[in-house]
Write a protein that binds this DNA or RNA. Structure first.
Lengths: 138, 138
DNA sequence: CTAGGTGCAAATCATTTGCCGGGGC
DNA sequence: GCCCCGGCAAATGATTTGCACCTAG
């Protein structure tokens, strides 16, 4: 754990949100003005693969990271791309049961799932009168 | 619906799998040797937004497309990236109940979810004796 | 004629990598 | 000295876009 890596790690923990690599870069740069994007990416990769942080790959757009490595789901805002945590418990049991019932778990080597909720964050909801949610047409 | 668009559409329907843009491009090029990647992308975008095909954005790597627009889930192979359909029904009810029970559905504008199973496809399982699944350590 | 669609090539954007120099052991 | 790491800049790879042309209505 080098100094740079430590700072990257600390900043992610401090942010509590789900920042993109360049948001992290900006933060870190305030403490280490000479750090480069390459270093940030390298360290994010290392931190993620050692399990200290979590790398989130939302459909499309860039990766995001978080300090919360507990197993949980996310809510992604279609509008601004912000990610929030969804406070529901992991569905492993529900899904395992479903998969087992279908006899598929043994056929496929399934050992994980990713569940992502799609919606609008509070800020974007507030701004929106004009937004038509898909499938909301009454 | 131009000729090129029609061909792109037809090839996707024929493929039944979950091809990437360049797999589609290769196929289409056999019928329209002069077509360009740009055109393929443009038409994939148009077909997807008109609902004729489905654009899949698996975490990381490139986008994939499918002709099956019915609501369903996918199983992504970590090894080769191939996508298969998961034959379980959409969990809307389960998830709506969970979200409602938590009183969150009203706070967040959630109107969709994406569930992706992570595993190994049959081909990759066959090749693997050496692969250690995360969390499989008995 | 007009608009949209195409082919081509160049641009974009996030991410990765090569290279070299430096610090710790 | 050896190695890992960081800074920098250039490379990569998927996707997008600008532009000029063309073709159908």
């Amino acid at each position: 754990m080098t100094h740079q890596r430590q700072v990257v790690f600390e900043e992610i923990l401090k942010m509590k949100s789900h920042p993109t690599a360049d948001e992290i870069y900006e933060r870190v740069r305030k403490r280490l003005p000479k750090i480069s994007m390459g270093t940030v990416y390298r360290n994010l990769e290392i931190l993620a693969s050692s399990g200290l942080i979590n790398k989130i790959e939302p459909g499309h757009s860039q990766m995001r990271f978080e300090g919360n490595v507990r197993d949980h789901y996310h809510i992604t805002c279609i509008r601004c791309g912000k990610i929030e945590d969804a406070e529901i418990e992991p569905l492993d049991d529900t899904l395992l049961n479903l998969e087992n019932a279908l006899g598929r778990l043994t056929k496929h080597g399934i050992f994980a799932h990713k569940l992502e909720f799609i919606g609008l964050c509070k800020a974007c909801r507030a701004k929106e009168g004009d937004f038509i949610e898909p499938g909301e047409d009454d």
